[in-house]
């Protein structure tokens, strides 16, 4: 089976020929249904990796192949969620979640005629993330954690094959974060969606991912890939077990070395 995402020897430089080299010689393969976490020192080009995969940036050299096609423009099979939920304040939460459907080609022409069907789908998603009945509220009436849940719904509503999460839980408190880890874990298990999670939190990466990818300091490239051996479904108790902590520590020292090397 060919991987869903294949990044081959990619260089990406910002700001013209003399600009900063964000990633260099980047190689990464992501299989269908896989949950990949990307970690690394800050400024290692994790966000660049996201933008390359979604086609927001086109690399100067090398190739990004998503779903068997070379990326030359934004690929519409992805859903994205950032640390900042970026809900539109003039729309209710439900309308915010329906927004991607007004954009994506294969849905936008069906939306008006099949509104009820899509609303039902959005409400089901809201229920999955524990926001049942909050669709009519405006996003600014929700707490940070609830907004981030809604943000996940928005990223998933058009049934993307690939979900890209850029530090989605960075701004949340520890308890909310753990709750949302479980939400993501269950979504991944239930929907079989491929997920790429960019994060600074090593415990988060080990808890959630099938494979943790460590990137070097700028210019970023992949320095190692660690398959996560823990069986699914994983419970939060795992966070306090020795093998889990050993793996987190190993990753930690690896990144510390990568920072020094920079």
């Amino acid at each position: 089976m060919t991987p869903l995402v294949s990044i081959e020897n990619v260089d990406m430089r910002y700001g013209g020929p003399t600009g900063t080299l964000a990633v260099s010689g980047l190689n990464l393969k992501i299989n269908r249904g896989e949950f990949v976490a990307v970690v690394g020192p800050s400024g290692c080009g994790k966000s660049t990796l996201m933008k390359l995969t979604t086609g927001l940036h086109i690399p100067q050299s090398g190739a990004v192949i998503v779903a068997d096609a070379k990326v030359t423009k934004p690929v519409s099979i992805v859903g994205m969620a950032f640390q900042n939920p970026t809900m539109l304040p003039w729309r209710t939460t439900l309308e915010n979640i329906l927004l991607p459907l007004e954009i994506v080609e294969r849905h936008r022409h069906r939306l008006r005629a099949n509104k009820a069907e899509y609303v039902a789908k959005a409400e089901k998603l809201l229920e999955t993330v524990g926001l049942k009945g909050f669709g009519e509220k405006f996003p600014w009436q929700l707490s940070g954690g609830m907004q981030q849940r809604a943000n996940l719904c928005r990223a998933l509503i058009h049934e993307p094959e690939l979900l890209m999460l850029d530090e989605p839980f960075g701004a949340l408190d520890a308890f909310t974060r753990e709750e949302l880890w479980c939400v993501i874990r269950d979504l991944h298990a239930a929907q079989g969606v491929t997920i790429v999670l960019v994060t600074h939190d090593l415990r988060e990466s080990v808890f959630l991912a099938d494979k943790v990818v460590v990137m070097s300091a700028r210019p970023g490239r992949v320095i190692s890939e660690h398959p996560v051996p823990f069986a699914r479904p994983r419970q939060l108790d795992l966070l306090y077990e020795q093998p889990f902590n050993d793996m987190v520590q190993k990753l930690h020292s690896e990144i510390a070395t990568a920072r020094v090397a920079a």
Binding site: V75, S76, F82, T86, E102, A155, M164
Partner: peptide, 17 residues
């Protein structure tokens, strides 16, 4: 916000959208 723009552009949104 650039993030909002990224989210929409990644879905294939045109400038007009």
């Amino acid at each position: 916000e650039p993030e909002t723009e990224d989210v929409l552009r990644a879905l294939g949104a045109k400038k007009l959208d």
